[in-house]
Write a protein that binds this DNA or RNA. Structure first.
Lengths: 327, 327
DNA sequence: AACAAAAATGACAGCGCTGTCAATTAATTA
DNA sequence: TAATTAATTGACAGCGCTGTCATTTTTGTT
């Protein structure tokens, strides 16, 4: 053990310094750190793991639906891992397979990590929840709809974000604002619609039923909803869609009707997915705090002090781009 | 060691069976596997790693530009890892930071894995290549432009894919085909344009210069290119754009000009990114074999037999959707 | 049947660190 | 000043497996 010899202390003291244990004098701590730097010493993860029964790994389990979301979760989670000498393992799962429980059982059973982050929508999968309940590994679900008992979880406030976007349009001078709903079976849909209605009510603005259209979080449903709203007897000056794909569809419908965005119509989306900055003009939207959510989820696994059960709400951002303007 | 006792063999024989070593009789192998199954035995990764100086981990280093691409690389890589009892660690890097070499040096130096997959465009970053040249860890770059010496790499054939898409449009009866170029500083751009020209030449079709427009792989540049081409004296019956974003922009330009897709104009893209199936009608496009590339890269690291230097070409697919039709 | 070669199995040291407890040193209290 | 308590350091067994080499068993050849 070169570092111990170089610093003139025992191997155990080197271990204490490397693990930031308190019971080391400042003098000794400096000697060890200096020796470690000189020798480019990095503790051996396998040895640490074998001796301490820790893997120094956190796993992220995710399904495929939204690559941008998942990548940003990874970004936040790896950031937290780096602060603690941990690494993030990824495990893509396919819940569209017929025998999903069988596929997942082996994988989760063999998974030997110190914690698990469950991305949506995997976090609502009954088979996964059941397997994890039997496994002695702490996990953190992200934006779950399902009930996870006392387990802490990470989420954003959809209703509040929708309120803020609607208020933003109102502050731009819009009083006639349409809304494209989300997929009827996703919990975020009703929250976002609720936020829109609350903001309209708070501003004493009436909602024209001709300007509320059903949607399914898809571009195609956005095109249809946009056409329905823009072909009503009277047109709104702004449309707020429940996500970016359907907002892009509304923009396409407007273009097809010779309506200029944002000159004749302001369009706002939700999520800040890739399409929000791909289309032209780029979408004003709500950015989900995905990186923060990934970071927080990992932190909840890595820092065991002061962890309270229940929701950890991450702060979204309103991203103003070229698809909205004042009237 | 319960498994050894249960099977009536030594611990070393259990190890041989678990590692699929050849020098075990079939009878003994069965006894051990049976005992392992009964006891739900999983070898301890830390112990294996400490004793064998392997980590049973592969790292994927990636930058952020294309989430869908990265997620699909991960899917393929984790598939290969699972076949070999390995796990995939992810390490997002930010090469837009000023002192990128400094940020990366510590991370790569401390990275203790059995192999590294380098996603584009990180695989062309000089600082990263330099650091890895000094590190005794095998790595596989994916779709590199930079020269990596004798190191095997994984790639697709852009020119051939573009030839096939152009031929597909020709087989649909299109003889007047426009083309939107890619970003002038990306190596794929010239290859895709080359493929288009080769297919046109092979079919003895002339290329109208009014139907070749510059692009930058963006939706916005696609809108502009689409307008330029569709406002020419004579219109083509199909436009092939160098990627899906610019193809979506061409579609928006067509809609604004009252041109119906695919009835009046067929539009084809390249990449099969998320936007290809988000827009309406969904894009006919070339699907990059990204999952296969991730799988192959990991396999090249995990299976040491028969690895030849040089390129491993993965087979793309032509994905026919609603944006093209016969004339 | 005897011998040689190949295949299969087992013994054991040790990989690099941590948990546990003992020993030593320093600080506090009476 | 002596006794007690707290802080610091070190000794050491052992975590669960693999590499190396010795031993045993099986197979092939003469």
């Amino acid at each position: 053990m070169d570092v111990a010899r170089r610093a003139g202390v025992s191997m155990k003291t080197v271990s204490r310094v490397m693990n930031n244990e308190p019971s080391v004098s400042d003098t000794t701590r400096e000697k060890v750190n200096h020796a470690a730097l000189e020798l480019n010493y990095t503790p051996n993860r396998a040895a640490r793991g074998l001796a301490s029964s820790k893997s120094f790994l956190i796993a992220m389990l995710y399904d495929i639906p939204s690559p941008g979301y998942t990548i940003n979760l990874q970004k936040g989670a790896t950031e937290a891992c780096r602060e603690h000498g941990y690494h993030l393992i990824v495990e893509p799962l396919d819940t569209n397979v017929e025998d999903v429980a069988k596929e997942i059982t082996g994988l989760i059973t063999r998974l030997s990590v110190d914690g698990i982050i469950l991305a949506p929508p995997i976090c609502d999968n009954a088979a996964v929840i059941q397997l994890l309940a039997k496994k002695n590994t702490p996990y953190i679900p992200i934006a779950p709809s399902a009930n996870h008992g006392d387990i802490p979880y990470v989420v954003m406030d959809d209703a509040r974000a929708a309120r803020e976007m609607t208020k933003h349009l109102i502050d731009l001078g819009h009083t006639e604002i349409g809304f494209v709903k989300g997929h009827p079976r996703h919990s975020a849909s009703s929250l976002r619609f609720q936020g829109y209605r609350e903001a309209m009510r708070a501003a004493d603005l009436t909602i024209n039923p001709d300007w509320i259209a059903d949607g399914e979080f898809t571009y195609k449903s956005g095109v249809e909803a946009g056409k329905a709203i823009l072909n009503a007897k009277k047109r709104p000056s702004a449309i707020f869609a429940s996500n970016d794909d359907s907002a892009a569809g509304v923009m396409a419908a407007a273009a097809a009707l010779g309506i200029s965005v944002p000159t004749d119509l302001s369009v706002a989306g939700f999520d800040d997915t890739t399409i929000a900055s791909s289309v032209w003009p780029p979408l004003t939207t709500i950015r989900q705090p995905v990186v923060d959510m990934g970071y927080k989820a990992a932190k909840l696994l890595l820092v065991k002090d002061d962890v309270e059960p229940g929701k950890n709400i991450m702060q979204h951002a309103l991203i103003e781009r070229g698809s909205t303007q004042a009237v």
